[in-house]
Nucleic acid binder design. Sequence first.
DNA 1: GGCATATCAATGCAGTTGCATCTATATGAT
DNA 2: ATCATATAGATGCAACTGCATTGATATGCC
Lengths: 144, 144
Amino acid sequence: MTKRPNEATTCAWISLMRTQRLALSRVEARLKEAKLPPLSWYDVLWELEKAGDQGLRPYELEKALLFAQYNLSRLAERLAAAGLIDRHECSHDRRGQVLKITARGRALRRDTWAVYAQAIEDAVGARLSTEEAETLAVLLKKLQ
Amino acid sequence: MTKRPNEATTCAWISLMRTQRLALSRVEARLKEAKLPPLSWYDVLWELEKAGDQGLRPYELEKALLFAQYNLSRLAERLAAAGLIDRHECSHDRRGQVLKITARGRALRRDTWAVYAQAIEDAVGARLSTEEAETLAVLLKKLQ
DNA sequence: GGCATATCAATGCAGTTGCATCTATATGAT
DNA sequence: ATCATATAGATGCAACTGCATTGATATGCC
């Protein structure tokens, strides 16, 4: 069945696209200003830090972060080149590898978070009450 | 003053980033499936169609669509090459130009909307009540 | 085991984006 | 009018992304 979006739906769609772009560009600008790497680096480092010693497989990161396979492959290459992660052989699947964060990676993640947290607070926290933020998150999750 | 984002704020931030990516990729996939150009083309064509006969200056489009100047410059080049817009000299500002949609451009915009509208309905309309969509739009606009 | 199929990750190539800069013209101050 | 500054838009180059494909291994079926 085909059904046209109503006014509210279209308006929500447009707001979603615009707001995300605006908010993201503000936050990315802060990171750049602080000479920190882009958010995608943070996202990978944080996932790996949470994963701890056992690390994560690239395909697990792909799913967790919604990255395209080839993008993650290249991002991992850059992170490894920068000494922020290590790529280990995977013992029980010789096609694969295991990514683990290094001490340098943890340090950079921590430094990035200092700036990132403030930027999130400015972009979101300062503009919504706690209750509004909760409502927003709930509504957004319905779209996922 | 520095203040850390609270749980709700962080959660809203993450949902905003993830949900937009997911929703956008679903919609773009539909367009691609239908062999239609990407959303950025639609956005420009629609702005120009709304602007009517007098067209719009590139810098006006930049502001309306939050495009970087160089991106719009190149996008306009591609749209013009595809015969979807015309670039006219600007009578009262010889640095500038005026962009106007062509008949082909209008036709493509219309065809794109048929698919786009359905995709928005599936990505948003089908997942939220009208009231929820309105609330979502209001909350998102507070972040702009 | 042997083969067909699926999954993991890398990569060549083309297209796009970001950054910095450039040219041309407009605007404002004197 | 002259000059300094600001704005409109284009562009060279490097980085990144998307697409399609590849190589390597794993898994399921007979």
